[in-house]
Amino acid sequence: MTEVALQAVELVRRIEGDVAHTLVNGIDLAVNKGEFVAITGPSGSGKSSLLYLLGLLDAPSEGEVMICGQPTSKLSESERADVRLTRCGFVFQFHFLLPEFTSLDNVLLPMRAAGKMAEGEMRERGLALLSSLGLAEHANKRPNQLSGGQRQRVAIARALANRPEIIVADEPTGALDTKSTEQVFSILRDIADHGQTVIVVTHDPALAARADRRIHIVDGKIAEIAMRDGGELVCEGVS
């Protein structure tokens, strides 16, 4: 039986103010463990907002996000931070690495914040992660000494540092050239193939086509879902 890693139940995110605006409008979604899900949609459709809700970076106005079956709506901000630290890994469009720190120090940051491993063990894991992403020789370089693709790979290594069940990536290839885009997507695919759940927001239909499932969002609602059937994604309509 397939295990659900992440589930959204009637998720709503509203912006209150002079002009109220609904970013996510009643989305139901279940993502299985080890699944690679791509979220697509036009600009302003609410795909990043949905991703932030799924990654507990933002709190829903209504509805529930369950991570590995555990509801999160009643968690305090500190508890949500703990869940993000240990169970979710984030990759953003821009690398968002701490500029004064080396690649290795950036990767070690979540591990040190969690404080569950000895320093030697953390360094060993950090170097192994960088090595697995082809960055072994760049471990002691600062972000400004790396190319865009290398920085994004360091960001992925940082996201993987605490062995999270879920990796959430918001247009991780949006600022990369074709070669780096290919590298990053291959890495994310590989992560999913090794059992971690990956949810990626992307504008690129070719990349979305390489996911196990593509969810198309329009006006904060799921407009279309396409599932992999053999080699291709086949549209299944709206869930």
């Binding site: 931070a81 984030f90 701490l98 979540p110 969690a114």
Partner: peptide, 16 residues
């Protein structure tokens, strides 16, 4: 500000 946002998004608590 950006680093603060990233540290918080990574799961570091506000007081930390």
């Amino acid at each position: 500000r950006q680093d603060i946002a990233i540290m918080k998004s990574l799961g570091m608590r506000e007081y930390a």
